[in-house]
Simulated scan of single mutants.
Amino acid sequence: MEMVKSAMAVVLVLVAMVPSLEAIESPQYTVVHWESEFEIREYRAGAWMSAPVKDISFEKATRNGFHRLFQYIQGANLNYSRIAMTAPVLTSIVPGAGPLHSSAYFVSFYLPVKFQASPPTPLPELNLKPYTWDSHYIAVRKFSGFARDSNIVQEAQKLATSLSKSSWANSTSEESSYAYSIAQYNSPFQWVGRVNEIWVDVNATGLEGDNGSEIATY
């Protein structure tokens, strides 16, 4: 019965995200380069909470990780703190892997400003790990519909192809801990107007000779 209640709670919070998506917090960034098929963002430093997951399926890994993160933001932490939902939910894949080959993922939740400096400590059984990323550049490709095991590899390959034809060719960051990440912004119950993104860490070499230093800040 408790598992049913927990599952229903996850459903309710995801449904609640739909009308308020524009109002919830997201990591801040500046667009420093834009092309029709991708953009380069400079993200500010920020604190996240991450759930490591071992699973062959990207979709199952995301559900597993988000379920644990949802328990954490609902109060399963040593402070019993309630934490507001943020976007996106980020699923990162380890280097050299993909949904059909990987067993290692990290599902991550961006911490609201209120908890950036001192995140509540998660209960040990949730196996969550806080981490802070430094300011860095990310190449982003948007795609609609649902992020599935069947399409995320193709979307990542499209981003790689676009980068290879641009000034950002050979700019993929060697310091990145992940091959690429999938950012999801919508409830699974939203069928229209869905927004997903493929993220790949890049370094600043692509900015050399680029006239558009700052396009927009979010």
Score class of each variant (00 low, 15 high):
residue 8 M to Y: 10
residue 10 V to P: 01
residue 18 V to L: 11
residue 19 P to K: 08
residue 23 A to K: 13
residue 24 I to N: 03
residue 27 P to F: 02
residue 33 H to R: 12
residue 36 S to Y: 03
residue 36 S to E: 15
residue 42 E to V: 03
residue 44 R to F: 02
residue 44 R to D: 12
residue 48 W to V: 02
residue 55 D to A: 12
residue 57 S to M: 06
residue 58 F to L: 11
residue 59 E to Q: 12
residue 65 G to Y: 01
residue 66 F to D: 01
residue 68 R to H: 05
residue 76 A to V: 05
residue 85 M to H: 04
residue 87 A to F: 01
residue 89 V to T: 09
residue 94 V to F: 12
residue 96 G to N: 08
residue 97 A to W: 06
residue 104 A to M: 09
residue 105 Y to L: 12
residue 108 S to D: 14
residue 112 P to N: 07
residue 117 A to V: 06
residue 117 A to E: 13
residue 118 S to K: 15
residue 118 S to T: 07
residue 119 P to T: 05
residue 120 P to H: 08
residue 124 P to Y: 07
residue 125 E to T: 09
residue 127 N to C: 14
residue 132 T to D: 05
residue 139 A to Y: 04
residue 140 V to A: 07
residue 144 S to A: 15
residue 147 A to H: 02
residue 148 R to E: 14
residue 151 N to H: 09
residue 154 Q to N: 10
residue 155 E to Q: 15
residue 156 A to D: 06
residue 156 A to V: 00
residue 156 A to F: 04
residue 157 Q to G: 01
residue 157 Q to N: 13
residue 161 T to H: 14
residue 161 T to M: 15
residue 164 S to Y: 03
residue 166 S to Y: 03
residue 170 N to L: 13
residue 174 E to M: 08
residue 174 E to G: 13
residue 176 S to E: 08
residue 176 S to T: 15
residue 184 Q to R: 11
residue 190 Q to Y: 06
residue 193 G to A: 07
residue 201 D to L: 05
residue 211 N to G: 10
residue 213 S to E: 13
residue 217 T to W: 06
